[in-house]
Design a binder for these strands. Sequence first.
DNA 1: TTGTATGCGTTATCAC
DNA 2: GTGATAACGCATACAA
Lengths: 361, 361
Amino acid sequence: MAGVKDVARLAGVSVATVSRVLNDSAPVTEETRARVLAAVAELGYRPNGVARSLRTDTTRTVGLVIGDILNPFFTELARAVEDEARSAGYSVVIGNADERPGRQDHYVRTLLEQRVDGLLLCPTAEITPLVRDVVRDGGPLVFLDRTLPGLDVPTVRADGTAAIGELVAHLARLGHRRVAFVSGPALLSTGRERTEAFVAALRANGLPVRPEYLEAGDFQAASGRASAARLLDLPEPPEVIFAGDNLMALGALDEIRARGLAIPGDVGLASYDDVPWFTHVDPPVTAIAQPVQDLGRRAVRALLERIARRPVEPEVLAARLVVRRSCGEPGPDRGAEDLAVRPLGAGPQGGDLTKEGSGPA
Amino acid sequence: MAGVKDVARLAGVSVATVSRVLNDSAPVTEETRARVLAAVAELGYRPNGVARSLRTDTTRTVGLVIGDILNPFFTELARAVEDEARSAGYSVVIGNADERPGRQDHYVRTLLEQRVDGLLLCPTAEITPLVRDVVRDGGPLVFLDRTLPGLDVPTVRADGTAAIGELVAHLARLGHRRVAFVSGPALLSTGRERTEAFVAALRANGLPVRPEYLEAGDFQAASGRASAARLLDLPEPPEVIFAGDNLMALGALDEIRARGLAIPGDVGLASYDDVPWFTHVDPPVTAIAQPVQDLGRRAVRALLERIARRPVEPEVLAARLVVRRSCGEPGPDRGAEDLAVRPLGAGPQGGDLTKEGSGPA
DNA sequence: TTGTATGCGTTATCAC
DNA sequence: GTGATAACGCATACAA
C-alpha cells in the first residue's frame, strides 16, 4: 500500500510537504498542493491512521462500553453518542459488556490498549479491579447511565425518582394497593435508586411495602420472566408488576401471556424505559421514558471536556412518566388517539406531552 | 505512561526480553519472566496497541458497517458478529451507516485508515466510488446480508424466496386476493429479491399483480408508515400489507392504529424479519424470520478466511415463515399456547418449528 | 537465553 | 515555502 513516501516521490516533493498538504498544518504553494493532491488521487493513497496515532498520541476515537447491545435503551444511547461524537470529529468504538463484568473488562482493556482518547462507560454491577485502576489513572473517563458507589467519576445519568413517584401515585389513584417491583442489580445505581424510589413512593402513597413484592432481577429478559413467575405464584399476587427496565418487562410479558392472563384484568404491567413497540402491545404499556438522546449528547460533551483536561460537573436528567393503558387506566379498549405515534428515531423525549392515552375527547 | 523501556529497566532486562515475555514469542527463563511480570504489574503497564499495530501491520480488529443501529435485525447481527469475532481473538468496530451512502463511506474510510484487518459491510443502496475502490483493492472484504449488483465480493446472506412463497400461499389459503408489498430500495439485493419473490409468488398462487400494491420503501419506519397510508387511501385498499422489514412493519402498524383500523379485520399485516415484540402485538404478527446468528457467525468465518488470503464461497441461508395471527389466521383471539414464548437472545432461528399459533388442540 | 539495533509510516522540529 | 531527519513504542533480525 502506498505511503507518504510514494506520494512525495510522484509529486516531486518531500514527505514533509505531503504531510503539510494533507493536514494543512503550514502554508503551501497552490501549485505544489495541487501536485500532491493529484499524486494522492492517482495512488489511491490512504493515510495510515495507526502511524499517525503513534506520532500524534491521539486517535480521534472514543470508546463506549454499553451494558447490552440487545437492549433498545442502549442502542438508542449508542446512536446518540455516535451522532454527537461524529459531529465533533470523533469515531466511536462500541464494546458490548452483555452485563458481564468480565466482558466489560475485556473491552475496557482492549479500548485502553487501542489508546482511545476517552472512555464512556456504563459500568456493570461489580467494581472490578480494572475499573478501579482506570479511575485511579485519571484518564478521560465518564460514567454513563450508571454510577458506581464510592468512585469519583463524572457521571451523566437520568433520575427516575420523580417519575417513579408519579407512577406509584397514578397506580394508587387507580385503586391498586398491591404493587410489585422487579429491580435491577442492587450494586448498580440504576438498580438501587429505582428500588429506593419505589419503596419511598409506596410509603408516600400509603401503600404497603411487602418484601415479597421486591424482586431482584438483572436487567435481562429472562430474569424478568422468572421474577414475574415468582410474583404470580404468590398466595396473594400483586395487582401490578413494575419492571425495572424494558427487557425485564418483555420477560414479564412473556410469562403473563404464557399463563393466559389478561392485562390489566388479571395483572397490570408498567415498565421503566420506553421503547417504540410499547404502543403496539395489547394494551399499550405505561412506562417511564428516559431522555436518551440528551443523555448521549451530554455524555459526549462531558467526555470531550475531560479530554481537554477541563473539569466537568455530574449531570442528572429527569425521566418522565408516559401513561398508557396497561395498568387499568380508563379509556377505550382500542383507539387511534390514545396510541402514541411518534416518529421512530425522534426518541422518547421529543415533545413535552407527559401523558398519552387520555382517550377521545 | 509507562512503556516497555520502563518495564525493562525496572526488571533489569532488555526491552526485547520484555516483549518476549509479553507475547511469549521466545523461550525465557522462568525467573526473568517472573521479574518482568512483576515489573509490569508494579508499573501498571498497558501495551500500546497503536505501536504494536504499526510494527506488526495487524490490528486484530475487524470493521462492521451496518445499515441502521436502531434496527433490531442489525443489532442482533452485530451481536452475533461480535461473539464470533471475540472467540477468534478479534475486536469488532461497528459503524452505523444509518442507511445513508455518505455515512457508510465515512465509516468505511475511517475503518480503512484505522487499518482494520478486514471489513464486514452491509452495503447501502448505491455503489459509491469508494466501495468500488475498496473492492478493486482486493483487501479482506465480505458483504453481509446484502449484495451489490456487478461487484465480485464474497457475500453471506439469507434468501427469503421460499419463505415468501410460503407466506403468499398461506395468505391465498386464507382467502386473501389483494396483497400489497412495501419493498426496500430496489438498488439493494434485499429490496429487489424480496419484491421479485413476492411477485412470482402472487403469480404462482393465481393472485393479481397490481402495480399500485407495490410500494417502494427504504427500510425505515417512516417510509413504512407513508407507504401504508398510500395503500390505505387507495380506492380498493389491499386486504393484507406485507412489509419488507420490521421497521417498515412498525411504521405500517403506526398508520393502521392512527386510523383506528382493526387487524386483521380491516387490514392484515405481515413482516419480513422477526423481532421479539411481534409476539406481543395485538394480534401477534406473522413474519419471516432470518437466521441472524448464523449469518453473523458465518460472515466472520468467511472474513477470517479472506484475511488468511484463502478463497471463500458465497453463502446463502434460508429464511423461514412464522405464522401468527395478524393475517386473519384462525384461532382464539387470545391464548397462552399460541404466543411464541422464546427466550430472548436465543434468536429467532432456534428450534425447528415453522409454525406458531395453531391454537389449543 | 539474552541484548543491540533497525524500522514500521507518520508528524514535527529545525534548518534553509 | 520547502526539505532533511528525529522520534513516537513496539517487535524482531541478528549477534552474542
